[in-house]
Amino acid sequence: MDKIRIGIPRSIHYYYYGDLWINFFKKLDCDVIVSPRTNREIMEKGIQYANDEMCLSMKNLLGHISYLQGKCDYIIIPRIDNYGVQNQTCTNFLAIYDIVNNMFSQDILSYNIDVAHHQTEEKGFLEMGRKLGFTKKEIQRAYRDAKTFVQNKKQELIRKNIEKLNSEKEKVLLIGHPYNMYDDYIGRPIISFLEKLNVEVIYSDLFYSSITGPISKQLSRELYWKFNKESIGAIPVVQNKVDGIIFLSTFPCGPDSLVNELVMRKIHLPYINLILDDIDGRAGFETRLESFVDIMQERKRKHV
């Protein structure tokens, strides 16, 4: 029998679960196909499929799915409702499975995470494995192995990220969702430009979420989006150690539009708000970032 081919779109969910999925399915002896890094072509495909008011990250995901269409047996798209009552996700995460299911004729492999109603990640993986015809034992072993591997890798990344705080260079905290920051079309150009300007970039998602989650209460008491909690929770942790903050969001991200506005009103560090859309205009960002770095350097010189 041929191996089952699983397609993983290198977009939104990939940056939370990508490693876990790849390891899990490799352990179960499936073929894994990850879509290539985002390029202009994929983005344009996504824009074609998407509703014009959808956020850029959604368009990006749809582009990746359209790339994978026909190249694999299943495309994996989870539906994430919440990680507990006060740790919800953006409504796009709730709707994405149904949207994709209606738009594409491809078979979809999906699972539901709804911790408030006792639908945990492990249950989701079990469900998914059963659909592919594996036994409970096989699935559980593969899940556990994959999970351990991913946790170790994440800890290593977090350690490296925290180490950067001791650097002598100008340090800037980049606040945003991982699927925007690490995307080759959305966030990567900005990060590499900052590195070219000799700035140390600290990522908001690479902290222990057990710390950043609760500490975000200092900035916003009523926040109930898990991913936003974790990214703004990084501010109180590092605010004495960094020289500036960059808010990176895509147009028109629902949670970011409110949360970032609130946080900007409360912090006392230099900050810049970058909103990316599907119109190509990276030159404007470069000018803004250059002057932002100048401000940080000037401020540092005064304080020393």
Binding site: N51, E53, M54, C90, T91, A95, D98, N102, M103, P252
Partner: peptide, 12 residues
């Protein structure tokens, strides 16, 4: 405009 849940419902 920008009502996220309804934007998701529109294609369906």
């Amino acid at each position: 405009s920008f009502c996220t849940p309804e934007i998701g419902a529109m294609p369906i």
